[in-house]
Amino acid sequence: MPDKRREYALNAVLALGLLLVPLWAYWAGSPFTITVFTRIAIFALAAVGLNIALGLGGMVSFGHAVYFGVGGYVAGIAAQHAFNGETFLGIAGANQMLIIWPVAMIAAGLLAAVIGAFSLRTSGIFFIMITLAFAQMVYYFAISWPTYGGEDGLPIYVRNTFPGLNTMRPWNLFILCWCLLMLAIGAFALIRASRFGAALMAIRQNPDRVAAVGISPFGIKLAAFVISAMITGLAGALMADLSRFASPAAMAWTMSGELIVIIILGGTGRLFGPVAGAAVLVGFEVIFGGMTEHWRLWLGLVLLLTVLFARGGIVTLIAGRERLG
């Protein structure tokens, strides 16, 4: 039982810390700090999405960056058409976040339905390689298709808007991202506690037994995969708006690796694992990236030692092995 209380406390610290530090930065007038924390919140949101597929369902998707990238392109393409008045397959552009977010989620979800339908026919090492290959396919398509920037990506000249908020101000954008992150974590908790989540976790442990009691593993896994991609796609749309740039680099395979790293560093399947992992990864980049250009070498070493000797990630280190819920 003390384990549970420690995890509740840790979760509260992470949720409030992520809110209070930027709030302090807002008063102290440090927009850079707010932007760093916005990045943490967005990466955490993307990883919460992947955590549904990977943490709950045991599906090691090495291509989740593609949904992150597609979300970004939805924001970029919508903004470009809203800007120049042209249409995308007859659909007018939009610069309203409340329109762009659902469209980004739907686009990522549809892509995940197609990719998942192929790759979920396999499992294990095949699944890892195939999700990677499909992500790479979309990546190469994006960089060789000249209409939307190709290799150069797509700039967003004016950040998309949210009713009642000036999204050009760092704090306003941050608070939007923080709220969406908390909503997604809430959704993750609901899914984990639901019958659907129970079936999903049972499939991770033993798909044959689940099939034997009359539940088809394929449908459950595909549904979880699509939900997972939709959340990651939403994060991608936010990231494009933060950097005011829809980049093909957002769907490069290294990004898929980083999303997995965030989850493992934080703690696989843990509610606030993605937040802890994203804070460590972004913090590492900001702190060590300022000291040495070879910070990736140190990140690699830390990661390697974590995998070899400290399994379970930060949340497990502090709150113990038992999962909540």
Binding site: I264, G300, L304
Partner: peptide
């Protein structure tokens, strides 16, 4: 995957 990803960085 993770350990060999770390090796790529290194």
């Amino acid at each position: 995957v993770l350990a060999t990803f770390a090796l790529i960085l290194i």
